[in-house]
Design a protein around this nucleic acid. Structure first.
Lengths: 244, 244
DNA sequence: CAGTGGTCTAGACCACGCC
DNA sequence: GCGTGGTCTAGACCACTGG
């Protein structure tokens, strides 16, 4: 590892970035599983032939990217798609009054379909590709609040038809069944009028203003994995965004 | 600085945090102005009696919080509320097609008013306090797209009435005229139906779904400074949110 | 070429969790 | 008490900027 760097201006990559890439490789390959305790800084430093400080910098960057969790006195763990973390990181709809609570969800239907234009573009699928399409309703405080349509590449999620049920926490499902880690996501929000079917599902009048959230979620390698379109009732809740 | 720490479990603060607090104090007091080049790491280390590495860590944290800008070979500068940075950090409405462009804006009216309940709560104002209330329209690609109402504490923004005009970039105005730096903001989004006055201002039908963004912006000390309510037409644009 | 931030190293000590 | 991550130091060298 010590001499992978040519030291020319072109293509110079700091050592700690190379270390980071190498460690991310282990996550992608599944050598390190979510929740697992990874070797200590000293061990990694010895094994990779760099100083402890360089290892530390790589681990710090990965921690900032929510890939690892470090606990003083215990060690460094691979981040898990656990409820609490997902809630904080990926679920931005919160009731106006209280703090956030994880919404339950009921599946309306799911089926294998030919990908439409939006799905092909968002998920980088070839023409004629198939997707799994899931429709569900999420409740906030017991009241239907979000209608969601989730699309997944059928080629990537092989064996999806064998599922007996679809859990509430999909990112854990992706992780455990397909070893896919969601690393980041991009959301685009618009205000739209409720369609007839959305109105029926959410128990509101047709034409009610809904917050439409289109999310594309990416894996560790930067490939799009999931397209999720949510239509949200926002009379008692809002989408929270922190700008820092 | 070396011995401000009691080394007891209670109230332990790392040195670099103390350094950071001390440097932030200079920003709050205005000793260091936006755009200014601050002393080099070595100078600061000597002046404060700590190692260069400790200074570096404090500066890195402040850079991550967008308070400083570091440029290799040149030095470390106090961050400016410049168009380009504001655009990236605080303006999340982008056209569906292109990349982001800074919107122009036209002031509809501004006046001093008695603060309403929402303003008192958001800005932590006492009962009976006064605010400056600004109404403006922002255009995206030449078309009216956003109707905004901005509220500022009259007690904090003294002399506001003396302004001959209100510029497009308000955060630069706050910085230059009142030495207030906006450090972070929280936005809450809902979908609402266009009111009669919004419809008139935006040239859409009454009842059109609008994206309503309520922003509270905070200064370096964490005090709320600005309440901004935006109603956005989202037929040709969207609100972009990155989840990492 | 001098000065700045960026990287890398080596070693010491501290706070924390667990046994 | 031991091992972990977290802090702090000191010093070397590298990459970038500007004169």
């Amino acid at each position: 590892m010590a001499d992978t760097n040519t030291r020319t201006t072109f293509g110079y990559r700091p050592l700690y970035i190379q270390v980071k890439d190498s460690l991310i490789r282990r996550l992608i390959d599944g050598a390190w599983q979510p929740g697992q305790l990874i070797p200590s800084e000293m061990e990694l430093a010895r094994a990779m032939g760099v100083s402890q400080g360089t290892i530390r910098k790589a681990l710090d960057v990965m921690t900032a990217e929510n890939l690892l969790v470090r606990r003083q006195g215990r060690g460094t763990y691979v981040a898990e798609p656990a409820e609490s973390r997902i809630l904080f990181q990926y679920f931005r709809i919160v009731p106006d009054s209280d703090e956030a609570s994880f919404p339950d969800s009921s599946i309306l239907r799911w089926s294998r379909e030919k990908a439409n234009g939006a799905e092909r573009e968002s998920l980088a699928l070839p023409k004629g590709a198939a997707v799994w399409r899931i429709a569900r309703i999420r409740n906030l405080g017991g009241v239907p609040a979000i209608a969601e349509t989730i699309s997944l590449s059928a080629a990537r999620f092989t064996g999806f038809e064998a599922l007996v049920s679809i859990p509430n926490n999909l990112y854990r499902l992706y992780s455990e069944n397909w070893r896919i880690t969601i690393a980041r996501a991009r959301e685009k929000l618009k205000a739209v009028a409720a369609s007839k079917s959305d109105a029926g599902a959410l128990g509101c009048a047709e034409g009610t203003p809904l917050l439409r959230v289109v999310r594309v979620a990416f894996d560790l390698e930067g490939n799009p994995v999931e397209l999720r379109v949510s239509r949200c009732l926002t009379d008692q809740a809002h989408y929270l965004s922190e700008l820092k």
